[in-house]
Design a protein around this nucleic acid. Structure first.
Length: 699
DNA sequence: CTTAGGG
DNA sequence: CCCTAAG
């Protein structure tokens, strides 16, 4: 069946036919209807989200492109096949626009570019009745000006079935990009699994088409190609489906972007099954390369199959970048900054974008600053509202029983950090889509508003604001709101459990679109690490500045979901604020994807905390200093602290006239010098000690 | 990953 | 802040 659905978001809208595949076996109208409804809902949701996002700044550019993504997953292990495919040359076929038929869609067609989008579990309601997997094929009708064309398929899988196919795969990009997909029948239904390989080079920006090759007989795989019209190549997205049973709703994502060079062999996509070592390896590579944009904790894109998933999950939680579990938690707290960002260009940190953009434009709210509260008079609406209710609802203001009212404004909801990995060759558009997809996935499950006070989640809805510690005269700065998935609908991934929830992006009531003033960036947690509560930033909000090209992420999402192959998003725990800051995308040079973290001057309080910690711990123990005084300041890495100390020492030695920036109290500088002198001496002693012994030996 | 330093 | 070389 094909439905035409009009998506309106932003100025542009796009109409897309939506194809829903129904199992061959008759399921009854009811199920079919249900399925359709579910799909449409999901779609609507996307549209809605996208619309909101777009509306913001983004009216800008062309938002709409759908993206297509190849299906990355396949059912069984096809690793071998993949390899074979790889070897084979594939011819590119022209994209067929019409190719998406219900039936055809599936296995027989040889070539199709399919965009596949996987809905996350969240998207689907668990209750869905049908057992068979359903696929939605969305073809964009109208192209952007860019001319995007593509189909996307949404595979709705339903639960229940164990479908291997759901597993996300990694897709690699290969030189020749043959895409492969496999189709199989499950429950009488066809399941399509596709893997696509894209040759970035070839496809390049312009490459419109991808080639697919398919050999149904042999491989069962169909190639998928997709191209984005806009030129850029879309990245294949790998998404992982959640387990049906799943506990995880997450999506995943992650593909590994492999460098061609690095992994030529690996075929474009790794099948889940295949994923094993190779995949893992790739993964790792990918991680390495990826910049850490955000520290996301929860969402990860994992790409792996079930096993992969497992791995991912774990990792994801803690460290997006590093896989080792043990490190996970440890590291998490520390910083990952060290990662080489440069190398990781390919990845944009989502959050970062937000932050970065924000600088100039963006919205993202930063933790503390996300909203401010002021006591006393409130304009707020909620006068008598109960704290409890308000919190749940996300109301901004609430009244205390007294006359005091807590006034706060939410500039935007914070988005949890989303971790995305995407090839550098991917287009900005695909990135946006990827982000959108991640966001959508989160949103799809239903949202709740969570209230964070000083970084802690306030769970008791019945407490009054006062009881909860939210008073008019208090640190409201520490108040934060976040969107979180509705447990009911979307259970958080396992990993997440530790954390309270993963939060969704968005901070608040305000429309996503809204861009908050830049304030956020600057603000930081206090010195001692006080943590600000607010945590996440969302990329989403930020438009990348419109400038870029951009469509808003939302758009991207819509469109594409598929596109990206990027991997995963990880929702981040609410806690850290800094994430955002981490990476600002610099638009200035887009070409250069690399972005430098945004500069966040140390506040006097931070300096104080640093000095205090160093006085106690000494120099040379930056990790400890970090943990001790900046554990909550995620954006401050131990390297940063070390660097700051270095500059402080320098600052202390130069004349006040030569100092720049926020003046640091002389008292602190004096402490810096004395502490530095003391510890230098200690260090010297340690070093000297040995010598004494040595001389003897020498002698 | 951490440190230490240079850029 | 970034990047790297060394542990």
């Amino acid at each position: 069946m094909v439905f035409h659905k009009r998506l309106d978001y932003g100025s542009s809208g796009c109409q897309v036919p939506v194809m829903i595949r129904v199992p061959k076996s008759a399921r009854g109208k009811r199920s079919v209807r249900k399925k359709v409804e579910d799909q449409m809902c999901a779609f609507d949701l996307l549209a809605t989200v996208a619309g909101e996002l777009l509306s913001e700044k983004t009216k800008l550019s062309t938002p709409n492109k759908l993206v297509e993504t190849p299906f990355p997953w396949t059912q069984k292990d096809t690793s071998k096949e993949e390899e074979r495919n790889k070897e084979k040359q594939i011819k590119p076929e022209p994209y067929d626009q019409g190719s998406c038929n219900e039936s055809t869609f599936v296995s027989e067609d040889s070539v199709r570019r399919q965009l596949s989008y996987q809905f996350m579990e969240q998207t689907h309601s668990p209750k869905a009745t049908f057992s068979g997997p359903a696929s939605l094929c969305i073809k964009p009708y109208e192209l952007d000006k860019d001319g995007y064309s593509g189909q996307s398929i949404i595979d709705g899988n339903n639960s229940g079935i164990r479908t291997p196919g759901l597993i996300p795969r990694n897709c690699d990009i290969e030189e020749h990009s043959p895409g492969r997909s496999e189709s199989s029948e499950v429950d009488g239904e066809h399941v399509i699994k596709t893997v696509s390989q894209i040759n970035w080079q070839k496809t390049g920006d312009n490459a419109p088409g991808a080639c697919l090759k398919e050999d149904p007989m042999e491989m069962d795989v169909k190639p998928t190609a997709f191209v984005s019209s806009d030129s850029s190549v879309e990245v294949p997205l790998c998404t992982k489906h959640v387990d049906p049973n799943g506990s995880f709703p997450m999506s995943r994502v992650g593909m590994e972007p492999v460098d061609r060079e690095e992994e030529d062999n690996s075929s474009g996509c790794t099948h889940p099954s295949a994923m094993t070592s190779k995949a893992a390896r790739l993964h790792r590579i990918g991680d390495r390369r990826v910049r850490k944009l955000l520290a996301s904790k929860y969402w990860k894109v994992a790409s792996a199959t079930s096993k992969g998933g497992e791995r991912c999950n774990t990792d994801a939680e803690m460290k997006p970048f590093f896989r080792s579990r043990k490190l996970c938690y440890t590291r998490q707290r520390t910083q990952r900054s060290s990662f080489k960002r440069r190398k990781m260009l390919e990845c944009y940190p989502i959050s970062a974008s937000a932050g970065g953009i924000k600088e100039e434009c963006m919205p993202v709210s930063v933790g503390n600053h996300a909203f401010k509260a002021e006591g006393s008079h409130s304009s707020a609406t909620l006068h008598g509202a109960n704290a409890a209710s308000s919190s749940t609802t996300g109301d901004k203001p609430s009244c205390q029983k007294g006359d005091f009212r807590v006034k706060l404004s939410i500039k935007s909801f914070k988005v949890p950090e989303l971790f995305i990995e995407i090839p550098e060759t991917a287009t900005v558009g695909s990135l946006k889509r990827t982000v959108m997809e991640a966001v959508t996935a989160i949103l799809g499950g239903g949202l709740r508003v969570g209230v964070l006070l000083q970084g802690k989640k306030v769970r008791d809805d019945n407490k009054t604001l006062l009881q909860a510690g939210i008073s008019h005269d208090d640190k409201i700065d520490n108040l934060g709101f976040m969107l979180e998935p509705n447990p009911t609908q979307a259970p958080p991934p396992v990993e997440c459990q530790e954390h309270p929830h993963f939060f969704l992006p968005c901070d608040a009531v305000e429309p996503l679109n809204r861009i908050p003033p830049a304030a956020a960036t600057t603000s930081n947690p206090g010195p001692s690490g006080a943590s600000p509560g607010p945590p996440l930033t969302s990329v989403v909000n930020c438009p990348e500045s419109d400038h870029d090209s951009v469509h808003s992420p939302a758009t991207a999402l819509l469109q594409d979901k598929a596109t990206a192959n990027s991997r995963a998003l990880v929702p981040v725990p609410a806690m850290d604020v800094e994430a955002l800051a981490v990476v600002p995308l610099r638009k200035s040079k887009r070409s250069e994807l690399v972005q430098r973290r945004i500069r966040r001057p140390f506040s006097v309080s931070e300096v104080e905390a640093l000095v205090q910690a160093v006085e106690k711990l000494g120099t040379g123990r930056w990790r400890d200093v970090k943990l001790r005084a900046f554990d909550n300041a995620k954006h401050r890495t131990y390297v940063d602290l070390k660097d700051k100390w270095k500059t402080l020492v320098h600052t202390a030695r130069i004349s006040p006239q030569q100092r720049r920036g926020e003046p640091v109290p002389q008292e602190l500088l004096d402490r810096v010098l004395s502490a530095n002198a003391y510890w230098s001496q200690q260090q010297a002693k340690l070093q000297v000690k040995p010598p004494p012994a040595e001389p003897c030996l020498l002698l």
